Amino acid sequence: MKSTLRIACSRGNLQEVRDFVRTYLTQRQLADVAVNQVVLAVDEVVANFIIHANDEDETQFLDLKMSFKGPELNIEIADQGDTIFLPPEHQAPDLRDYIRQGRKGGMGMTLVNRLMDRVEFFTRDNHTVCHLSKRLA
């Protein structure tokens, strides 16, 4: 079962990421709801890396690794670009204020934090890494 994927930093590769995550998880016969939650969370983080950290520079790439340790799913998304991308400490936004202002965007990491049990960003060897984990029965 393939557990790693490398993609160029292009939005065009997001479908490949979603398919990879879905295939990996459905082979473990997990509930559709859990699979969809993880697919959505990974898609959001990868999109942020592609768009915000790498300006969709297709000469840069991301590595995605998935593994289970018992019932815990661990996902690592490593940015191999030259820019360190550490989002600010996450605070849930005031949704009423968002609606009142008519804002669009900026809710992705809020969603990721609600879908996953743990979300961590850190640096390794001058690259940005995001670690996601979720306990799946």
Results as ranks from 00 to 15, higher is better:
residue 32 D to Y: 14
residue 53 A to L: 08
residue 48 N to P: 07
residue 124 R to N: 09
residue 98 Y to I: 15
residue 116 M to R: 00
residue 42 V to K: 03
residue 77 I to Y: 00
residue 87 P to Y: 04
residue 129 V to Y: 02
residue 16 E to S: 14
residue 44 E to H: 13
residue 121 F to Y: 15
residue 103 R to C: 05
residue 2 K to W: 11
residue 59 T to D: 13
residue 40 L to Y: 05
residue 110 T to S: 10
residue 82 D to R: 12
residue 57 D to S: 03
residue 32 D to R: 13
residue 50 I to E: 01
residue 67 S to L: 12
residue 15 Q to N: 14
residue 14 L to C: 04
residue 56 E to P: 07
residue 119 V to S: 03
residue 66 M to Q: 01
residue 137 A to W: 12
residue 36 N to Q: 15
residue 134 K to M: 05
residue 102 G to A: 01
residue 24 Y to L: 04
residue 38 V to N: 00
residue 126 N to K: 12
residue 68 F to C: 03
residue 137 A to K: 07
residue 69 K to M: 10
residue 42 V to I: 14
residue 54 N to I: 03
residue 29 Q to I: 11
residue 134 K to Y: 03
residue 93 P to Q: 06
residue 75 I to Y: 02
residue 132 L to E: 01
residue 2 K to Q: 14
residue 62 L to F: 00
residue 68 F to I: 04
residue 48 N to T: 06
residue 84 I to H: 14
residue 96 R to Y: 09
residue 76 E to N: 08
residue 106 G to L: 07
residue 122 F to K: 12
residue 81 G to W: 01
residue 78 A to T: 09
residue 74 N to Q: 15
residue 47 A to G: 15
residue 89 E to P: 14
residue 38 V to G: 02
residue 68 F to Q: 03
residue 125 D to P: 00
residue 104 K to E: 10
residue 129 V to G: 02
residue 135 R to F: 07
residue 3 S to R: 12
residue 96 R to H: 14
residue 44 E to D: 14
residue 54 N to D: 07
residue 74 N to A: 15
residue 47 A to M: 15
residue 89 E to R: 13
residue 50 I to W: 01
residue 78 A to F: 04
residue 1 M to W: 14
residue 121 F to V: 11
residue 65 K to R: 10
residue 89 E to T: 08
residue 45 V to D: 04
residue 55 D to G: 07
residue 40 L to R: 14
residue 42 V to R: 00
residue 40 L to M: 14
residue 61 F to A: 04
residue 29 Q to Y: 09
residue 62 L to H: 01
residue 26 T to K: 15
residue 35 V to R: 03
residue 35 V to A: 06
residue 22 R to D: 12
residue 23 T to C: 08
residue 51 I to H: 15
residue 96 R to A: 13
residue 132 L to V: 05
residue 120 E to W: 08
residue 121 F to D: 06
residue 58 E to P: 05
residue 62 L to N: 01
residue 93 P to H: 10
residue 110 T to E: 11
residue 132 L to M: 05
residue 23 T to D: 08
residue 9 C to A: 07
residue 12 G to D: 13
residue 9 C to R: 01
residue 24 Y to S: 03
residue 116 M to K: 00
residue 45 V to F: 03
residue 42 V to A: 01
residue 20 F to R: 00
residue 8 A to R: 08
residue 76 E to I: 05
residue 99 I to G: 01
residue 5 L to M: 06
residue 17 V to F: 04
residue 69 K to A: 11
residue 102 G to Q: 08
residue 77 I to D: 06
residue 110 T to I: 06
residue 59 T to K: 06
residue 91 Q to D: 14
residue 22 R to K: 12
residue 134 K to F: 11
residue 106 G to W: 06
residue 102 G to W: 07
residue 104 K to Q: 07
residue 19 D to V: 13
residue 84 I to M: 09
residue 56 E to S: 14
residue 45 V to I: 12
residue 133 S to E: 04
residue 40 L to H: 09
residue 83 T to S: 13
residue 119 V to K: 00
residue 55 D to L: 02
residue 66 M to N: 05
residue 47 A to P: 02
residue 82 D to E: 15
residue 64 L to R: 05
residue 109 M to F: 12
residue 64 L to Y: 06
